[in-house]
Design a binder for these strands. Structure first.
Length: 103
DNA sequence: GATCTGACCACCG
DNA sequence: CCGGTGGCCAGAT
């Protein structure tokens, strides 16, 4: 496992319950501002044996953007709703209310 | 080491 | 608000 992926996993683990973070946000936190796509790539490659809150990562617009693993998009939504995250019309999360402020 | 690919994002119009 | 577009760069082949 590369150091970059390792950092990504660590930062994702910091996202508190009931909050979400964007891919780009995670990328910035690991010191790689332009690596939003790699965050998704890393999560797609994450074995289920590694327990991290991958479901708290959504697009910058508050939408679930899973494409690699079909069926997981629905699963992610269920997990988030179970944590209290609300989805509006069109399956969008109100980022102004639920985005994790890492400052 | 060139090329292709991708759970993205900011920026227009 | 919505869709298209270009840029981004670490892995995989």
């Amino acid at each position: 496992m590369s150091d970059l992926y390792e950092k990504i996993y660590r930062v994702v683990s910091l996202v508190p319950k009931g909050r979400v973070a964007s891919y780009g946000q995670i990328a910035r936190l690991v010191g790689k501002p332009r690596h939003a796509r790699h965050v998704g790539f890393a999560l797609a490659a994450t074995p289920e044996s590694i327990k991290i809150p991958w479901h708290r990562i959504v697009s910058a617009k508050g939408e679930i953007r899973i494409q690699a693993k079909q069926g997981y998009d629905e699963y992610q939504r269920l997990l988030l709703e179970d944590e209290g995250v609300e989805f509006g019309i069109g399956g969008k999360i109100d980022m102004t209310r639920f985005q994790w402020k890492s400052d």
